[in-house]
Amino acid sequence: MAQSAAPVTAAAPALTPVSLRAIAPWAVFFGLLMLVLLYFVGAEQGAVALLSGETVHEWVHDGRHLLGFPCH
């Protein structure tokens, strides 16, 4: 019983660090996307509305209350 039945596996390769130059475009893209989303959830109504009507307001109504934005 000195021999093991489990196969020997090679060590996992080390992860290489990701440069800031590779991450920067994605960080800017997602940052802008989050700002647009925050605008539509938090400010798209009334005098600063980009779109007319109440459609966007109704789509994000519950999320607006969940995040603490007043809308009534």
Rank of each mutant, 00 (worst) to 15 (best):
S4R: 09
M1K: 04
A11R: 08
T55A: 07
V18M: 14
A24M: 07
D62R: 04
E44L: 05
V18L: 15
P17N: 13
V56C: 01
A43N: 00
P17D: 11
A49G: 02
P7E: 15
L20P: 01
A24C: 03
D62N: 11
L37Q: 04
L66N: 07
R64N: 08
W26R: 09
V28Y: 08
V28A: 02
V36G: 08
A43K: 08
E58I: 07
W59H: 09
A2C: 03
C71M: 06
A6Y: 12
A47M: 02
V28G: 06
W59S: 08
C71Y: 14
L50T: 00
L50F: 10
V60A: 02
Y39P: 02
L33G: 08
G63P: 14
G31Y: 15
A14E: 14
G53Y: 01
A5I: 15
E54K: 12
G31N: 04
V8L: 07
G31L: 10
V36N: 01
A43P: 00
L33N: 06
F69I: 04
P7Q: 01
V8A: 09
P70Q: 10
S19T: 15
M34D: 12
A27H: 04
L20H: 12
L38R: 04
T55Y: 02
S52E: 06
L38C: 07
G46V: 09
L32V: 14
G63A: 14
P70R: 04
A22H: 05
F40L: 11
A49L: 03
L32H: 12
L66Y: 15
A47S: 00
F29D: 11
H72T: 09
T16Q: 10
V28M: 07
F40D: 06
S4L: 13
L20G: 15
M1L: 12
T55L: 11
V56N: 10
M34N: 12
L50D: 02
V60K: 05
S4E: 14
R21W: 06
H61N: 14
A6V: 11
I23P: 01
L35Y: 06
Y39L: 12
F29N: 03
G53H: 04
L32S: 09
L51W: 09
L50E: 00
V36Y: 08
G31A: 15
E54L: 05
A22F: 04
C71P: 04
F29T: 10
L38V: 10
A11Y: 05
A6N: 06
A5L: 15
H65E: 06
T16N: 14
A14W: 08
E54F: 03
Q45F: 06
P25C: 13
E54W: 04
H61R: 14
L33D: 08
P70G: 15
F29I: 13
L50P: 00
P17C: 07
D62M: 14
V8S: 10
G53M: 05
P7M: 13
D62H: 12
W26M: 05
F29A: 05
T55N: 05
S52K: 03
A10E: 12
V8T: 10
L37H: 08
F40G: 09
A5E: 03
M1C: 02
H65I: 12
Q3W: 02
G42C: 00
